[in-house]
Nucleic acid binder design. Structure first.
Lengths: 223, 223
DNA sequence: AAAAGACAAGTTGTATACAAGTATTCAAGA
DNA sequence: TCTTGAATACTTGTATACAACTTGTCTTTT
């Protein structure tokens, strides 16, 4: 499995290398405990140390590797870590949605619906990568629209990992059939309904249910 | 005002430059809208572009500057942004404390009490920098002890900013007299009491009160 | 006078070079 | 056989070099 090249548009060599390594680490093609050196990785990607160094800094900031005196130690993302990632996503997204509850979201809701439509289209075409992309966009849009600088930066700090995890789990979920994916897409409609209601308690309930389901989906896709 | 050199122990030239720039940006010695170029900053710090580049990446990740094609644009931290920072701190810390509620925290509580003692000693000696350091350590300890990898990384992503903001606001608060600082130190004791009780609702109430107070302190120190 | 185009200065992204420090290995001696 | 020590190879952090691109200015042309 390769990182979708379309997702690398406009990114530097360093970010590109980071994306490939990130996928392989989460993928466990590169295993926890392994030691990466700037020189070896540079040779592997046929690049110089500069962009590799940038990639290492990015991955270290995401906690996927740990920079030490002699080599970068791969930390990896086991199931526990992924569940922790969902904890954080829940924290960020419920904050964002509570903030949106008070506003007029008409324009955003239209775009969210369009996104869900694209998800369903992706199911029809059997296009996993497109589905993952739209799923990601859906959640990112909510966080962005909340208009909270710091929350947005928190999201940015896990953005790449979330995108990659979504790519992998979506690929797994697709193997459970199209009905399952339809169900996943429909789950997003409940979120839209919540936001449309503008009722804070109802939104809280829906977001909670959403991530409880996601957690269950996660367990299912990795067993 | 300079960044305390003791806080730079073990950090690379790049992190060091980042710390100095960070202080000046939050300080508004460097104003929003200004454009920094790698070459000029390198010359200023008598370093090469490599560490400056690293510093820019760090500051961009923290949202203090925005990397563009031609130069880095200073974003800065106005009062609104700082309040947003407190929102995030509240989010992180209440999550961490809720997690701690279920555990046995005897050892940690001792260390927290020691930290508060050091804060009071710092007040006695009129040592602002030491106070800020202990205050910072207090909150970092709580997040770390929660033992949640992802929350820890969220904290890491705002760590440097929080530290610097604390340094500046503490310096301001000191001008309001020692009684005020004693009061700030005592506030931390209520947090310890909460954690000792192990009661989730009580903890929630205390953390909420703590950050409400901090927000008020913030307004006071910047007006 | 105004517009268009070429040129010059400055910027980043990447590659390479160098220096300081660390781990490993291998050999020699107890 | 085990320990000790020196040498070697490899690591990162920083400095410098180069290429591609952007921007603003100045000249030339209409």
């Amino acid at each position: 499995m390769h990182y979708p090249s379309a997702w690398l548009q406009g990114s530097s060599r360093g970010e590109s290398i980071a994306s490939h390594l990130r996928l392989q680490i989460i993928n466990e093609s590169i295993k926890p405990g392994e030691i990466l050196s700037e020189n070896k990785v540079a040779e592997l990607f046929e690049a110089s140390r500069s962009p590799v160094r940038e990639a290492f800094k990015l991955l270290a900031g995401e906690g996927l590797i740990r920079l030490e005196r002699m080599g970068a130690v791969v930390v990896g993302l086991d199931l526990t870590h992924i569940q922790e990632l969902y904890d954080v996503r829940y924290l960020i997204e419920s904050f964002a949605q509570q903030r949106l509850a008070k506003r007029d979201n008409a324009a955003m809701l239209v775009r969210l619906e369009q996104t869900v439509d694209r998800m369903k289209l992706a199911v029809k075409h059997g296009d996993e990568v497109e589905f993952a992309f739209q799923d990601f966009s859906f959640h990112e849009m909510i966080v962005q629209e909340a208009g909270h600088t710091r929350i947005w930066h928190l999201w940015n700090s896990i953005r790449s990992i979330v995108r990659t995890v979504m790519l992998l789990t979506t690929a797994n979920s697709f193997r459970q059939g199209k009905e399952r994916m339809e169900w996943v897409a429909d789950k997003h409609l409940t979120v839209i309904e919540g936001l449309r209601s503008g009722n804070e308690e109802q939104i809280a309930k829906i977001v909670k249910a959403y991530f409880a389901d996601s957690d269950e989906t996660l367990g299912r896709s990795l067993s």
